[in-house]
Design a protein around this nucleic acid. Sequence first.
DNA 1: AAGGTAAAATGGAACGTTCCAAGAATAATT
DNA 2: AATTATTCTTGGAACGTTCCATTTTACCTT
Lengths: 331, 331
Amino acid sequence: MKTNNTNKQSVTVHDVARVAGVSKSTVSLVLRGSDKASDRAKEKVLKAIEETGYVYNREAAAMRSKSSDLVAIVINDLTNPYSANLAVALEKHIRELGLMATLVNTSENALTQTQIVAKLQEYRVKAFIICPTPNTQASWLNQLQKPHTQVVSIMRQVDGSQVPCVLPNNEMGAYNATKALMARGHKHIAFIGGDAAISDYHQRLAGFNKAAKEQVDIQTWVFNSTTNRHGGRLAMSECLAQVPQVESVVCFNDIVAYGVIEYLAEQNLKPGADIGVIGFDDLDDSKLMSVPLSTVKIDANDIAKAVCHILKNDTQEGLTQVPVELIERSS
Amino acid sequence: MKTNNTNKQSVTVHDVARVAGVSKSTVSLVLRGSDKASDRAKEKVLKAIEETGYVYNREAAAMRSKSSDLVAIVINDLTNPYSANLAVALEKHIRELGLMATLVNTSENALTQTQIVAKLQEYRVKAFIICPTPNTQASWLNQLQKPHTQVVSIMRQVDGSQVPCVLPNNEMGAYNATKALMARGHKHIAFIGGDAAISDYHQRLAGFNKAAKEQVDIQTWVFNSTTNRHGGRLAMSECLAQVPQVESVVCFNDIVAYGVIEYLAEQNLKPGADIGVIGFDDLDDSKLMSVPLSTVKIDANDIAKAVCHILKNDTQEGLTQVPVELIERSS
DNA sequence: AAGGTAAAATGGAACGTTCCAAGAATAATT
DNA sequence: AATTATTCTTGGAACGTTCCATTTTACCTT
């Protein structure tokens, strides 16, 4: 029963108003769910919308009202499974807030990041949720923050920036993981993987060192690597070569742990039984591996909730540390 | 040297015009890079923009000109590594076209898909690039296509839909993979993993069967699974239990192959040496595994290029099949 | 039934840009 | 130097919505 006028000019509030027999203003009221319109009017307008196939023009609305409902999620590297997880969780929670989420990827490139964000500013986005690339300037991040534009930085801290920041409690996570290995009676423990250019790394390493220092007879080693599976494998091979007496390892994240486990398998060493392995993130795969991976879980939903809390309340509180949870499985 | 008026109303073309000593229309011309403005005017305007800190209001522009440069990339599941790869490649190529890409995730949920797309329509996006969820209605996809809205479906084909579609040549890929295994002299070959609800599955399986039928003494089996690492492991365990004489397997994709390899390692079987394994996709990790994975590479850039070709030329050609490449490594 | 009050509906202005038709300035031609 | 052709520039209207001040309608109260 739809009136087919798709080939004509686009349908506007005026058309809907005409069909419904009310004014443009009333239609606008109904569209925004105002309680100032009578039920009878609402009904008529809704029917007219259905009949005409009207679609709301959010650009026009945004221009007039000077407020947008667009939230940009600026992710450093979507091909990283944890980032993708987080992005999806953020998108879902933002949508539940009644806002529109748009996702962009900066590929860890600071220049790309500035370019994309500049373009997004032209769309008057209401908020930026940014996982900053390495070399992000604090001044740049700060000036992004404006009366009608919120900025939240996530997962990584930019020195000297004034914008609210949501982080997992990296130090606590690594501390707990290390203590758990010490509780197994292990005294030779290594920290494997991670990139010193990122703030996460230092926080996790700090937790590791803090735990180790609490007991006098603990020996530790650190082996850096690129933050991927291959890096984990290489670092673990180096570790075993240099420190054959190593009893267990704390990995920078699960992906690195996967590489570690892969190398152990090649050496006929069984994770958990022969060498303790604890990861960080708790990716979906981790619980499903042949030897389920022990890990420090960062719940993406918790991060997303903390971000949404800041968005809703427009608070300027500096740092939100999201608790993490040690999940001991078989490794 | 910037005039600080950030706390005032926002800066508009009028302000820039006043500062530059030209008309609003001239400013608009310069903004759009028109060659109808003199170099002297351009220079003055550019300087004024710098001075005033003007930022372009794309909503206002889009409303007036009735054309947007927003391209929506609607991805079925961003937590799938291949999808994330593809999304990143698409975003990059679309940006190079001078358009703005926005990424959204539907989590394989048809209802979410309709909701998100409806919301995006309110932003008057220029084009939808959709990897459709299972149960996507062809009629829904078709009516999305309008005079000013292009639609391209990627990776999956929706029966009965009229929108242009870009697919990897799944059948050819699986065919070549299977033939490569046959060339090793294998006669007992299984197809592992994949979900029958998705068009990919049937195309890849068809290629597998086609190759097997070309030689009289080939025996084949098919083991379905969920399309993840865990599924691959389960399917492979079932396969080995039921078909101990199996010599090699074609996997639905690399992720499934990872699960397969994991299970083989548990059974002390070496991929390539004991059992041939070929994947599909060529994820970054595949070349870096302890036994580098043989696989059928789907180049995400090729898919993105094909999509951009359709966007540029506004062609309505039905199906674009992107060539795939068999990469034989050690498995 | 008349007056008063609250609720509902409305027309015009405004948001910041681009389009358009037309005017001004400059260059080219005779 | 006068005319024509060409290149630049410009003010006003328009895009589709929301805001605002005002009018109309509905609902009470006495």
